[in-house]
Design a protein around this nucleic acid. Structure first.
Lengths: 358, 358
DNA sequence: ACCCTTTATGCAATCGATTGCAACGCCCTC
DNA sequence: GAGGGCGTTGCAATCGATTGCATAAAGGGT
């Protein structure tokens, strides 16, 4: 038995505080029942206990350094105060701002977040969701779903509050906060067309994620709307949102018979890959090729040349999705909401008129 | 009573699985006692139950989709399987690689991590530590401690396994994984001296964190060892590891009567600030000034010019600190260990010989 | 054949906090 | 002065899993 509680300090049993005081210790010290302590310390129940008793309990709790055991409370109430967050890749510089917005908003509401990095193997997603549910999370934020993701149905079946951020599922069966991907591409294309570009390439992201598919469709639509003939719309699809896949796709695009004068990348990491490819081919940006990124991830203003890119409000997305989740937790029957944030174009040095040798 | 369990699906009580099955459900289905189920499903206790019964239980658990309630188990065993990680700032691009190494190693050992972002207000640190302890974390990873941090004593008093990463406390009272900050500065200074620099500046980090103080001391020592006279060693101290503080410190340094021909920054974010300051003053790097960073955070190879910097093995640090923590949890009496990783210099385009106009 | 060991399972307490219900005492009213 | 009501507090069950101990069944030895 009790090899755990009350670590014996020396030999004499003088005063062995050791492990954290429990509600019982506070109750004994005050000569009241534990339930009274519980009520006194709960903002919503404290009206049930006499003010002076409550005060006595509060000071006793403070002097003992009592902190309620969240695990025990969680077992009883069925709420853990934990939110699970599934990230595609923590090391992707685009993610921390979202995460930051999520955790800050949730912390303010008394929740802690468990962040799980799914990584390249998508089958881990389901596994991680199950692990998080087993940990009793009160809700999930998924930044990882692909179109037609089976995990969506799984979450629905588990009837646990779930919200999506940045990406959405094809059926739109879950509430989500996303940016207007198509509008973002329109900003990029219109900017290039205004500069005089007539042959524009696109490096699309993976087509199984909503941003990849929507941005590609958005690019096509924007280019057509700008009056570019179909043969002047060049598209290569990257297999992942990574710098290296961007480089490979850019090389494919550059090797086409009729090269584009500008490339719009589906995200900034892919744009970095374009820079790499340009270096390999001995081409200069923006003199030989204009480049537009997407996301405005940190420090792309420091690149050479500074990257023109479509800025999405990542921190705001994080905050919005957290609020959405809190609303769902408070009332799971709330209408499935979908918040679409408008991106803006940040013009920097990577775009110029074609043939404009500065 | 049960407003929680078994959400009623329709009217007929035909089959209402709804909320997750408990160990009791599995036991009933198998006609055994819950304790037998518990034993059968525990790798360490399963030898106590007959192999065929264990097998039956396992399949029943699988078909029911049973996952043990971690909260309940945690309450009983006193272990939560949670590790708290305190980060100075998740949005700092230097941190994700460390975090990635930590979480991956801990996940492999069955732990989940709660990441808390302390932010600029250091008093939140203590508060967050208490919150994490109240959540029953089995251990803490602190990437936030300052020299003489009161939180160190607090953790020691709470007798909870704690390890430090990247930074250490002044008394070295806690196990830590750090890099050899002084060696890193020696690499940087020696490189610049070899290029012919004789007046070298340093933008130091905050002096209340170990990296800031050690790197400054390391810089001084390396410069003296290289034979630079004291008046040729110029130091400005930044108030925080941010791009903007770096910019301000760089401007102060550039305004000195006798300007340096090279600056070593205490970290890459500060180096970014130097780039900004150079832009403001119309100076070119490396022609007018060589710059060396520290940390080799992601994508500094894409800057213009690509940043010469001291690379620290951040991912490895994360992995090492996780292993250290696991060892402490397994046996809290293990000797307080301190792991020092050796940095290497990555030479890129931001350093050149003084007066070398390419 | 009997007893003693070994093996497998059941029983019940426990972790710490929460909460519906019961009970107590007090005050007010008629 | 008795009864009703309200404001406080205590009691005990509960959440779900774990584990020391008890017990039952099976096996082995003489």
């Amino acid at each position: 038995m009790g090899r755990k509680n009350r670590a014996v300090t020396g030999k004499g049993a003088k005063s062995a505080p050791a492990s954290r005081p429990t509600i019982k210790d506070v109750a004994e010290k005050c000569g009241v029942h534990p339930s009274t302590v519980s009520r006194a310390l709960s903002p919503v129940m404290s009206h049930l206990v006499a003010p002076e008793v409550a005060e006595r309990i509060r000071t006793a709790a403070a002097t003992l350094g009592y902190q309620p055991n969240v695990t025990a409370a969680g077992l009883r109430t069925g709420r853990s105060g934990l939110i699970g967050v599934l990230a595609p890749d923590i090391s992707d510089p685009g993610f921390p701002p979202i995460l930051s917005g999520v955790t800050e908003t949730l912390n303010a509401a008394g929740y802690a977040t468990i962040v799980a990095d799914v990584g390249p193997d998508p089958s881990r997603e389901r596994e991680l969701v199950d692990k998080l549910i087993a940990r009793g999370v009160d809700g999930l934020v998924l930044a990882t779903v692909v179109l037609n993701d089976p995990v969506v149905g799984h979450c629905l079946a588990a009837s646990i509050p779930v919200v999506l951020v940045n990406r959405s599922d094809s059926g739109r069966r879950l509430p989500a906060v996303v940016t207007d991907d198509e509008a973002g591409m329109r900003l990029a294309v219109d900017h290039l067309v205004a500069l005089g570009h007539r042959r524009i390439g696109h490096i699309a992201g993976p087509q199984d994620v909503s941003t990849g598919a929507l941005r590609r469709a958005g690019f096509r639509a924007a280019a057509a709307r700008a009056g570019l003939p179909a043969q002047n719309i060049l598209i290569e699809t990257a297999r992942a949102y990574t710098r290296d896949e961007g480089r490979l796709a850019a090389l494919r695009l550059l090797d086409r018979k009729q090269a584009a004068t500008a490339i719009v990348a589906a995200n900034d990491l892919l744009a970095l890959g374009i820079y790499d490819a340009l270096g390999e081919r001995g081409l200069k940006c923006p003199a030989d090729l204009s480049v537009v990124g997407h996301n405005d991830m940190p420090y792309v203003d420091m690149l050479s040349p500074p990257l023109t890119t479509v800025r999405i409000a990542q921190r705001q997305m994080g905050e919005a999705v957290a609020r959405l989740l809190l609303a769902r937790i408070a009332d799971p029957s709330t209408r499935r909401e979908r918040i679409v944030l408008e991106p803006i174009l940040i013009v920097r040095g990577s775009t110029a008129s074609p043939g404009d040798r500065e």
